[in-house]
Write a protein that binds this DNA or RNA. Structure first.
Length: 261
DNA sequence: ATGGCTGCTTTGAGCAGA
């Protein structure tokens, strides 16, 4: 049995955030770190300092937007790395990477933002969710210990939104988006934050504008969803609000799950 | 009522994010 600290964090550009990310990694020592929005091609990802700390790194980078990465700390290693859905559909946006780490199949996603209901981007987001649903349904059948984590860009329930009345029908909290996220859960995974904390407000993102963080006007849109066998091994789940404080933070905070595997 | 911040870009005003 080994205690594994698994983290998902939308870093909002690894090049703009690297100093803070490196300090955070040194302090928190995650065993598995899933990053979203690295916003660079693979060759520009700053691998050296992280490798020196014992991390193996798998990248699915892209210029300007998107880009995802999975890091695993020795003695854990990354095997069977795959990128994209591989379902015959469009793969021009780097939003999904998967790897097997310590006997756990880990899928790291950056779900499209969707801009606003009624837009082409919103339609694209819902279609992306349908591809993800099929992907997760197939993967949970193959891997008993399975987790899909990342920036889902959807707040599942009113408690996950600072002002549900204001957000009702808006992007990230519209009914079709919440139903789309629910289909992922229905494919056979569980929201581990709610498993450990069935009620209460928890946010993972706060707008840079309007003092949203000091006022705690946030959304819970970053999630860790685990198969039943893995969810049963979750010992704690927390959101590190400290990482959202201070100078030049990402607008997202890391979500940290401790697993006994 | 709107935008309010931040990061990106064949470096400069516009897009995108959430």
């Amino acid at each position: 049995m080994r205690r594994v600290k698994l983290v998902t964090w939308n870093v909002n550009s690894i090049r703009a955030r690297f100093g803070r990310v490196l300090e955070w990694v040194k302090q928190q020592q995650p065993d598995v770190l899933c990053m979203q929005e690295i916003k660079c091609v693979d060759q520009e990802f700053p691998v050296d300092d992280l490798r020196a700390l014992g991390y193996e790194i798998a990248l699915h980078g892209q210029k300007t937007y998107n880009g995802v990465a999975i890091l695993a700390r020795a003695p854990l290693t990354l095997t069977d790395v795959t990128r994209g859905f591989d379902d015959g559909g469009d793969e021009t946006q780097a939003r999904l990477i998967a790897a097997t780490v310590g006997g756990v199949r880990v899928v790291n996603v950056y779900v499209p933002n969707g801009q606003a209901p009624g837009t082409d981007k919103y339609t694209f987001k819902l279609a992306w969710y349908e591809r993800l649903r099929a992907y997760v349904a197939a993967a949970v059948g193959k891997h008993e210990r399975f987790v899909v984590c990342g920036d889902f860009n959807v707040a599942p329930a009113p408690e996950d939104v600072h002002d549900p009345a204001v957000w009702e029908g808006q992007i990230h909290f519209s009914i079709p988006e919440r139903e789309a996220l629910a289909t992922i859960v229905a494919a056979g995974v569980e929201d581990v934050l709610r498993r450990m904390h069935p009620s209460g407000q928890f946010f993972t993102w706060w707008d840079y504008r309007q003092l949203a963080f000091p006022k705690n006007k946030g959304l819970r849109i970053d999630h860790i969803l685990a198969s039943p066998a893995l969810a049963a091994r979750v010992r704690s789940v927390a959101i590190d609000r400290e990482a959202r404080k201070g100078k030049e933070p990402s607008d997202h905070a890391p979500v940290i799950a401790e697993l006994e595997v």
